[in-house]
Nucleic acid binder design. Structure first.
Length: 808
RNA sequence: GGGCGGUUAGCUCAGUUGGUAGAGCGCCUGCUUUACACGCAGGAUGUCGGGGGUUCAAGUCCCUCACCGCCCACCA
């Protein structure tokens, strides 16, 4: 064993060994009946792992390794999401770069090309998980487009259909003109943009002047069917019921009253364009107004806009409309206006609200049991604030637009016959369910990618087939993910699990922190602030990276910190070296045995057990950062600086009992550290004398109360040592044991140099004065809890003794 | 506009039920004859964002203001 622990090579070796020996597989190390199941949030096949994946992987791996050591039948399910629009976006852009397009090569060729491309990316991602030391069952890799998974998706759809919860409706949707598909509200991101607000006058038909409206989308004037004002708006009361002439097109439309108009905005009068605005769509529907469309699916002006405009880019059309207004003296003014505009999450094209025929899933019946389950705490979100958010999101969830006009994804199990009958069936029907026609055509649309993600925890187990795995591993235990995905994924897994299997897929949802760049900005490729998690892993090791990420994790957003990772590296190195001390001194013939003879040996055994319990508490509460603190303190302060220093001399003397006990203590330390630092602990384990199973599947230390009484045995020695080192004041110790340990750990030659009796005297006098003040305060003594007063008295007495012991 | 969170040492952050502020890094001082200098021992540094309130006692509970961040959102 070298003095410097070098993770590179060691970690890769263990990662291969564990996987090859089947120790990552479901059920490895199983010694009890209960299962422990986590389904990894399947990364999109499009990319590589980012820092959030590394943190999330570390969190899940700690829980999984811990449960594996406790003997649970543990399954950590890996795989990928086909990520419909995200994947199509990447491949489509590749085609554009090659000077072609998906339309040119056609659907079949496009899908084939996508399959080819993701054969490479998937491999990369799984290798990155391996490099992190993630103990997922790599033999069970699943993909949301595997054939059995497709069965699950289609079954989900047909069951919803059978309940009558899926319907087709013409509604206004968010339309991405680049991808030429509808996207859900959740896939639209709002970005601040500079715009121009145009104020245009619409003349009344009776010649009594005009009414002014304000708009940022001048081209949509062509599709106006009304002007609306607020019913209580005194300025426009006279106008209600009159008619105005729409500029350019000359259409006569009514002025209506609707409370949804905001009088304070713009001119207070709103032009109504039901075909191209969600609010106008609703107002139009409630007032029985027609829907006109002037913008086509490609985002350009369509034929309905008239021959002058057809085919124009919207911006050009805007300019022409403005020119017309100016020419006819109907342009009142134009103002700079900065506002949030909806854009496509994937390609950032401006979203066009369009009326289109889409498939919807009614949410009310699906959400209700999920809301109840959350309210009854049958599933819990951590932290608690996210639990409330999850409930609120379900309560407010609008019907889910599940159809997408994409090519990459699960095609809807809907067929049409020439007579227009609709057959919904899976497996695919041979003939129309209504008329028996064999000439069926499948609906070209695919499902929203989250429709299939929602089934991840059980579709990966073979559902809808009644597999032994579903029976054994469903429901699972924990799901850990990022905050922004609660509505997209967590809630949908909850309601689909309840609907299809009658149970929620997990009992706890961990919402982990977002890892920001060191400067506090978001980590993103476009900003250049991203840090590849493989970088710290290569530089400092997977153990150090795992430790560092867990240390900085909390409930809020956290900044990435190399310092935290270096701390992890130091911990691994420290551990390596104390193991070197013990193993070398014990010799190859030694064996571990708990044979404590002296106080410090009983004390470290008690400390190890107490720390084990503290760490378990942290993990039960999902407080990963707190756990790293416990482990660091245990290793550096308790195990190395006190225990190892105290027994060092006896180890050199060849004391077999001390060596056996030290080996036993080291084994317990390694076990407690293993879930966070799996590689270095396994490597040390290998170097211990005697044959034993791999640490990864070795039992987690059992509670051991034998030495609990000695937990505080060293408190007095530690305090005496600190006093001595600081001031050269020798504090009287109570027993030979205490004096012996003091002598072994404290080296007088090093302490004296720092002694400054005068400074110490001043410090003690200050403390004593403060303590006397407090005890002289009647209100404090009368009202503080007795133990607080007593503690203050003891502190005061101790300071007095130390003061008296100071050399003059 | 709505919701949530943050503001504690030079930096990154902990602070459980109110009991008189901590860690790591950095900095200063002193230590290497057989675990580790990726180490050991010691030290300095805080009006706990501002203001008000409750309490014997507030970083912790309440109100308020300021700034920062995230999520959500149909003021065209």
């Amino acid at each position: 064993m070298e003095p410097l622990y070098k993770p590179d090579g060691v970690e890769q070796r263990w990662q291969q060994t564990w996987e090859n020996e089947g120790l990552y597989a479901a059920g490895a190390g199983r010694r009890r009946d209960e299962s422990y199941v986590i389904a990894i949030p399947p990364p999109n096949v499009t990319g590589s792992l980012h820092m959030g994946h590394a943190l999330n992987g570390s969190i899940q791996d700690v829980l999984v390794r811990w449960h594996r050591m406790m003997g649970y039948d543990t399954l950590w399910q890996p795989g990928f999401d086909h990520a419909g629009i995200a994947t199509q976006n990447v491949v489509e852009k590749q085609l554009v770069a090659e000077g072609t397009s998906r339309q040119q090569i056609g659907r079949d060729a496009f899908v084939e090309r996508t399959w080819e491309w993701l054969g490479q990316t998937g491999r990369t991602i799984m290798d990155q998980y391996r490099r992190l030391g993630a103990s997922v069952d790599y033999s069970r890799e699943r993909f949301t487009m595997d054939d059995p998974y497709i069965d699950a998706v289609m079954t989900f759809f047909t069951r919803l259909w059978d309940r009558g919860w899926i319907y087709r409706a013409n509604r206004i949707v968010n339309w991405c003109p680049f991808h030429r598909t509808a996207v859900s509200d959740l896939e639209v991101v709002h970005e601040d943009m500079d715009d121009t607000l145009t104020f245009a006058r619409y003349p009344f038909t009776d010649g009594s002047g005009s009414i002014t409206i304000a708009t940022v989308r001048q081209a949509t004037i062509l599709a106006d069917v009304a002007v609306a004002v607020h019913p209580d708006d005194e300025r426009y009361r006279h106008a209600i019921g009159k008619e105005v002439v729409v500029p350019v097109v000359g259409r006569t439309v009514p002025v209506i009253a609707d409370p949804r108009v905001e009088p304070a905005f713009g001119s207070g009068a709103l032009k109504i364009t039901p075909g191209h605005d969600p609010l106008d769509f609703e107002i139009g529907r409630d007032h029985d107004l027609p829907q006109l469309a002037v913008i086509g699916l490609d985002g350009r002006m369509c034929d309905a806009a008239g021959p002058e405009f057809a085919g124009l880019d919207q911006r050009e059309a805007d300019d022409r409309v403005v020119a017309w207004l100016k020419e006819h003296d109907q342009l009142e003014k134009r103002e700079h206006y900065r506002h949030a505009v909806g854009t496509c999450e994937r390609c950032h094209s401006r979203i066009e609200p369009l009326v289109s025929l889409q498939w919807w899933c009614a949410m009310e019946e699906l959400a209700r049991p999920a809301i109840e389950a959350l309210q009854e705490r049958r599933v819990r979100f951590h932290p608690e604030s996210q639990h409330r958010f999850a409930i609120k999101s379900l309560e407010e969830a609008p019907d889910w637009c599940i159809s997408r006009q994409l090519w990459w994804g699960h095609q809807l199990p809907i067929w049409y016959c020439p007579d227009g009958h609709v057959t919904v069936q899976w497996p695919a029907p041979d003939a129309c369910a209504e008329c028996g026609s064999g000439a069926l055509e499948r609906d070209p649309d695919v499902l929203d990618t989250w429709f299939s993600s929602a089934l991840w925890p059980f579709a990966t187990l073979g559902w809808p087939a009644e597999t032994a795995e579903v029976a054994r591993y469903y429901p699972g235990d924990v799901n850990s993910t990022a905050r922004e995905i609660i509505r997209l994924w967590e809630n949908r897994m909850i309601f689909s699990g309840l609907f299809l299997l009658g149970e929620i897929p997990f009992s706890d949802v961990i919402i982990h922190s977002t890892v920001l760049a060191p400067d506090g900005r978001r980590m993103s490729k476009s900003l250049g602030t991203g840090i590849d998690p493989m970088e710290p892993i290569d530089d400092h090791g997977a153990d150090a990276t795992r430790y560092g990420l867990l240390k900085i994790s909390s409930t809020q957003d956290v900044r990435f910190s190399y310092g935290a990772i270096e701390e992890g590296r130091k911990l691994a190195n420290k551990l390596w070296n104390v193991a070197r001390l013990i193993v070398t001194a014990a010799g190859p013939e030694a064996s571990a045995a708990v044979r404590p003879r002296d106080l410090e040996e009983r004390w470290i055994l008690a400390r190890l057990d107490a720390a084990r319990e503290e760490v378990e508490g942290c993990w039960h509460r999902f407080e990963f950062s707190a756990a790293t603190g416990v482990l660091y303190h245990l290793t550096f302060d308790d195990f190395c600086d006190w225990y190892a220093e105290a027994i060092k001399a006896r180890l050199y003397d060849g004391d077999a009992d001390a060596a056996a006990t030290a080996l036993a203590a080291l084994e317990r330390l390694l076990a407690v550290l293993h879930p966070v630092l799996p590689h270095v602990t396994e490597e040390i384990w290998l170097n211990l004398p005697a044959q034993r199973p791999r640490l990864i599947v070795s039992p987690w230390p059992e509670p051991d109360s034998s030495f609990a009484a000695d937990l505080h045995a060293l408190d007095r020695v530690q305090e005496a040592a600190q006093t001595f080192r600081r001031s050269s004041v020798q504090v009287e110790l109570g027993s030979d044991d205490e004096r012996r340990i003091f002598a072994a750990v404290v080296r007088p030659d090093r302490a004296k140099a720092n002694g400054d009796a005068e400074a110490e005297r001043a410090r003690l006098l200050k403390e004593i004065a403060r303590g006397e003040d407090m005890l002289a305060n009647a209100r404090f003594v009368d009202n503080a809890p007795p133990q607080v007063v007593e503690a203050e008295r003891e502190k005061l007495a101790r300071y007095q003794r130390e003061l008296e012991a100071l050399p003059l």
